[in-house]
Amino acid sequence: MLDKAHIGLSLPAHTVEVEKGRLRFFAKAIGETRAIYLDESAAQAAGYRSLPVPPTFLFSLDLEQAEPFAWFGTVGLSLPRILHGEQSFVYHAPACAGDVLSFHSQIADIYDKKNGLLEFVVKQTRVSDQHGRHIADLRSVIVQRNS
């Protein structure tokens, strides 16, 4: 069983610069072909400062650390047994290429269902930019299967 004492645990914060090349690669990987996601001048013509960060890419930016899954081990999650159960984003301000975003995460909850057959870990992440502006909040639910 996962140790509920980890509820409230803060994970190491990290900071990442949003790169245009990565945004173009992500666009390619998801089949996005519209110019505002690929061409900075088209994005600027549409009113963006640079290429916009697509809706789910903040999740990817949170993985831009040396050991993005290290926290799984900290709370007792095992990579072969986990699934992504839920993901939420609340957006406060748009982010664009060139922004430097900081990610502060915390274990918000740990619970189980079916007499411990399924265990759940909820991670909350606050994203802010280089000006201290609140950009978004992310919430991930990771499910571990104990069979």
């Binding site: 916009p52 697509p54 809706p55 789910t56 699934l83 992504h84 159960g85 839920e86 993901q87 939420s88 984003f89 609340v90 957006y91 748009p94």
Partner: peptide, 11 residues
């Protein structure tokens, strides 16, 4: 996209 306020998924 700037009109998007929240986005939730259950897998």
């Amino acid at each position: 996209q700037p009109r998007l306020r929240a986005f939730n998924a259950r897998f």
